[in-house]
């Protein structure tokens, strides 16, 4: 009798108590993290190695195709990719096909260029706009961007995000179309990576990879398996793994700076929260089956 009451009461508990538990489970490990390091999965390593060993004259293109709602998962990827490209001295072109992605790209560029230029002593160490990197910005519709970049990027983006005419930028002498792009990484929370495959890759054969929210990551495995994507970063965990690889690369290159890695930082909380959710499911099921058996 006593036991049944507890089980029934457990099932009827107000949701706000569960909300409170989740809040604490996530908050405490953020303030007092335990030391755990993510180990890179094969698909993350594949993308890292590809960019790491890319010929120097090939540029990295990053398409910031997500919106502020999924910033927590995806922004760390943009930051890590930018750091990687600058650390290996590849040219970078940044764009977005989502108008709401513009501000996020701008934030990431401002952050990473500041990091590198604060630690630079010579011209070779610093990153300069229009020479080492370019922020093409955004235009519409998606087809104009994805198909047009195969012909001439300056026609798609006649002016960059800041309002400069792109033909006047020295870097654009080296990045004319997809032929000069070693790999284009689309960071997205929707089906946009599939559009990149359909339009940019089918017609122009550009190499692609994607960083994607965990929600849709499982749906993108068929494209990794088919080789249409060279590796993939899945969710905050994928971001954390990439952060680790980039950090190792930077240390190897003598860049022993203290930088915030928001993905890695989150892993303690993530672990605790997964355990909590699993516990919720298990307790909920025990209560459910126990009371159902009684009712029968």
């Amino acid at each position: 009798m006593e036991k049944e009451n507890i089980l029934i009461r457990l099932q009827r508990i107000d949701r706000r108590w569960i909300y409170l538990v989740l809040w604490l489970v996530v908050m405490i490990p953020l303030i007092f993290p335990f030391k755990i390091q993510p180990q890179p999965t094969p698909s993350v390593e594949k993308l890292f190695n590809y960019i790491d060993t890319m010929p120097e004259n090939k540029a990295l293109a990053i398409s910031v195709d997500f919106t502020p709602d999924t910033r927590a998962e995806l922004q760390p990827m943009v930051v890590a990719l930018l750091r990687h490209a600058f650390a290996t001295q590849h040219r970078v072109g940044i764009l977005t096909v989502q108008v709401y992605g513009l501000g996020l790209a701008e934030e990431a560029i401002r952050q990473v260029t500041a990091e590198f230029n604060a630690n630079a002593n010579t011209r070779a160490d610093s990153v300069i706009y229009g020479e080492d990197y370019v922020f093409w910005g955004w235009t519409t519709p998606v087809l104009t961007v994805m198909l047009g970049m195969g012909e001439r990027i300056t026609n798609v983006f006649p002016i960059d995000y800041y309002g400069n005419r792109t033909e006047t930028l020295p870097i654009m002498q080296h990045i004319k179309n997809y032929d000069d792009i070693g790999i284009l990484v689309t960071i997205a929370a929707s089906a946009i990576p599939r559009s990149w495959i359909n339009y940019a890759q089918t017609q122009f054969g550009v190499n692609l990879s994607c960083g994607i929210t965990a929600v849709s990551a499982a749906d993108f495995y068929p494209y990794v398996n088919s080789g249409q994507f060279i590796g993939m970063l899945a969710g905050m965990k994928g971001a954390a793994e990439y952060e680790q690889l980039v950090r190792e690369r930077m240390v190897k290159n003598g860049m022993e700076w203290v930088l915030r890695n928001r993905g890695t930082e989150a892993m303690s909380s993530q672990t605790a929260a997964h355990l909590a959710i699993m516990a919720f499911i298990v307790i909920g099921n025990i209560a459910f089956f126990a009371t159902r058996r009684k009712r029968k």
Partner: peptide, 26 residues
């Protein structure tokens, strides 16, 4: 815009945790 959008979406973590407890049954 970023805090409003990101927070609105993060409410899902809570909805999911309570659904995990009260609805996800084998």
């Amino acid at each position: 815009m970023v805090p409003l959008a990101a927070t609105m979406f993060s409410l899902l973590a809570f909805f999911m945790s309570s659904a995990a407890y009260r609805a996800f049954r084998a």
